[in-house]
Design a protein around this nucleic acid. Structure first.
Lengths: 112, 112
DNA sequence: GTTCATAAGTAGCTGACCTACATATAGCGT
DNA sequence: ACGCTATATGTAGGTCAGCTACTTATGAAC
């Protein structure tokens, strides 16, 4: 998959990954990798700043913990984040519906 | 719909709109607007440069014509453009499958 | 004669995402 | 002791697609 097709949809992926659980950045990356069958291999330089953005936006909060001597910053959704996730999901549905319409039936075939 | 969710998918829309017919830029914009039920309202500053990009890439060719005293640059797909459209369609399908997986079933529910 | 619809275009900005790098600990092998 | 790999977090800087705003031009309507 071309790397920046994600543009504008990364937040949705992160919020969805954090839905109902607490994860740290590194774990989120692995989770997305596995959950997509290897199709999503997000670099840390993409994910960490994105999580900070989400935190600044109030959609997630973070806490530090130490596991096996290593520091982790674990994130979880806020209530605003939950709401944002719902919004992202419906925006995604609308988006795919529109594009599907053009790509599949918006052209010359359209037989209404 | 948030304006730049399109990033990376505009080419697919333009190629699909031109599939099997010749259109000029202004008509493409209107076509996309109608074909999407008003959801897609692309500014000319987005579409014209994109068409030029596609022409540089060899995916479309353009010819000038004059209708009612107004000059139009009409575009049509090249064979490479046809191939590109097929590629864009399958990339789109893959993309939505991956994101749908994460957004819908990639999280805690995944009950495989 | 000015306003609207049609038609095409450029200039400049923004910012999300990428690439590449820096930092640090634990554990393993040698 | 030393280096390498996996784990874990982060920053600096660049790219470039798409956006905003503007310019140019014709024909029709008023």
């Amino acid at each position: 998959m071309k790397p920046d097709a994600l543009r504008g949809h990364l937040d949705a992926l992160l919020l969805a990954t954090l839905d109902g659980r607490q994860l740290h950045g590194y774990a989120i990356i692995e989770e997305l990798q596995q959950g997509s069958g290897g199709a999503l291999d997000l670099p840390t330089g993409t994910v960490y700043p994105a999580l900070r953005r989400l935190e600044r936006a109030g959609h997630v909060t973070s806490d530090w913990s130490t596991v096996g001597g290593r520091k982790r910053r674990t994130y979880k959704l806020t209530q605003a984040g939950q709401r944002a996730l719902l919004a992202e999901r419906s925006a995604w549905r609308e988006f795919t519906t529109v594009i599907d319409g053009v790509l599949g039936g918006g052209g010359k075939w359209a037989q209404t």
